[in-house]
Simulated scan of single mutants.
Amino acid sequence: MCSMCFMTPCHPRCPNAPEPVVVRTCSRCADGIMEGEAYLDSDEGPICEECLSDMTVKEYLEYVGEKLATA
């Protein structure tokens, strides 16, 4: 048990906690996608959840090779 956070394993915010492991790199922002984080595994490369939430529906559709139909 950790002497600072009293948890096993350490709480992620504890100074004794190990550094998070980067397992992928976002193809849009180039930030690391940490172990346990959600991401989109696209043909263009992985996209982090933050970049996905910043995209408009139109941008997302264009990114995956689709487009809106016009009536």
Rank of each mutant, 00 (worst) to 15 (best):
E50D: 14
L40H: 12
P12Y: 06
S53Q: 09
A38M: 14
C29Q: 07
M4H: 06
V57Y: 01
A30K: 15
E44P: 00
S27A: 13
S3L: 15
P15R: 11
C26D: 02
R24D: 01
L52E: 09
I47R: 07
C48V: 12
V57I: 03
S53K: 11
M1P: 01
G36A: 07
P15A: 10
V22P: 05
A38K: 15
H11M: 08
R13L: 07
E50F: 07
G45V: 14
C51R: 04
L40G: 02
C14S: 02
C48N: 08
P18C: 05
D41I: 02
G36L: 06
P9E: 00
N16D: 13
D43Y: 00
V22I: 15
D41V: 02
P20T: 10
L52Y: 07
E37G: 06
C2L: 03
G32R: 02
D43L: 11
M7T: 04
S27D: 08
G32L: 09
N16I: 05
G45N: 09
E37Y: 04
A38E: 12
P12E: 08
C10V: 03
C14D: 08
T25S: 03
S3V: 10
P18F: 02
E35P: 00
M34P: 00
Y39V: 13
D31R: 13
S53I: 02
C10W: 01
D31A: 09
A17S: 15
P20V: 06
G32Q: 04
F6W: 11
P20I: 12
E44Y: 10
E49N: 14
C5H: 03
C51Q: 12
T56D: 03
P15S: 14
P15N: 06
D54I: 00
V22K: 09
N16G: 13
S27C: 14
R13C: 03
P12N: 02
C26G: 03
C26W: 05
E19Q: 15
C14R: 03
T56L: 06
G36C: 02
G45E: 12
F6H: 10
M4R: 14
D43A: 11
D43V: 03
D31G: 03
D54P: 01
A30D: 15
D43K: 09
E19C: 04
H11T: 06
M34L: 15
R24M: 03
C48M: 05
C26L: 05
M55I: 02
G45Q: 10
C2D: 06
E35T: 06
M34V: 04
E44F: 07
L40A: 14
C26Y: 07
F6E: 08
D43Q: 10
S53V: 07
E35Y: 04
S42H: 08
